[in-house]
């Protein structure tokens, strides 16, 4: 464990809590892509199947359970409790365009052809594109609530910190996880234009509205 990974996990947890608080307090999920949240729940489900078969540490187990609970609670709030405020007409990204190629790729490019390993690989590839429906929705509506931009900032920051963690682990323990690193780079690149808008607009107190 290193400081980059801890900060990354905290940033990830903070993002999920920010989103949950936003929906819970405003009792509204307008502007939030339910499809992205479904993809995140799928990412955690396929990645954390080893929760019961492979104990790594108390921290690892507790965080996995919290991440799973947050993901499913968020999906429940969007499609269940506050479904009347969910603007599905703006959440139109075709998930099959992501799921089909990623499923194929996880069968082709993995470390070992076992169910657990293929599901883990699927979750890594899926996570790198899971935010696309949300970014697509923002580009379609042309704006995002400030709290939503903070959510996206910490969500993008978490994987950027994981990149620093992998650089650190490569130099200190010669650890190299090519699938996770390549996917992590792709995932962080998708956030770059958002990061630019966040720094130049939101941090200056303006509302995030796309040109």
């Amino acid at each position: 464990m290193n400081v980059f990974r801890i900060l990354g996990d905290v940033s990830h947890l903070l993002a999920m809590i920010l989103l949950l608080l936003k929906i819970w307090r405003s009792k509204c999920c307008t502007g939030i892509s339910g499809k992205s949240q479904i993809l995140f729940a799928l990412v955690f489900t396929t990645r954390y199947l080893d929760l019961f078969t492979n104990f790594v540490s108390l921290y690892n187990t507790v965080m996995k359970v919290i991440f799973l609970l947050c993901a499913y609670l968020t999906v429940y709030m969007i499609y269940g409790k506050f479904r009347k405020t969910f603007d599905s007409e703006n959440d139109t990204f075709r998930l099959e365009f992501l799921l089909v190629p990623i499923t194929g790729l996880s069968f082709l490019e993995n470390y070992s052809f076992t169910p657990l390993e293929i599901l883990w690989t699927f979750s890594i590839y899926l996570e790198s594109v899971a935010i696309l429906p949300q970014l697509f929705m923002i580009s379609k509506t042309g704006e995002a609530e400030t709290i939503t931009t903070h959510y996206l900032f910490f969500l993008g920051l978490y994987r950027a910190l994981y990149l620093a963690n992998w650089i650190w682990r490569y130099h200190t323990e010669n650890f190299y996880d090519q699938i996770a690193v390549v996917s992590g780079v792709v995932q962080t690149i998708f956030y770059c234009d958002f990061f630019y808008l966040y720094v130049t607009k939101v941090l200056k107190g303006k509302k995030l509205s796309l040109p």
Partner: peptide
């Protein structure tokens, strides 16, 4: 990074 047991990251 091999299969299964090496997975110590979230």
């Amino acid at each position: 990074e091999g299969p299964g047991e090496g997975k110590d990251e979230l």
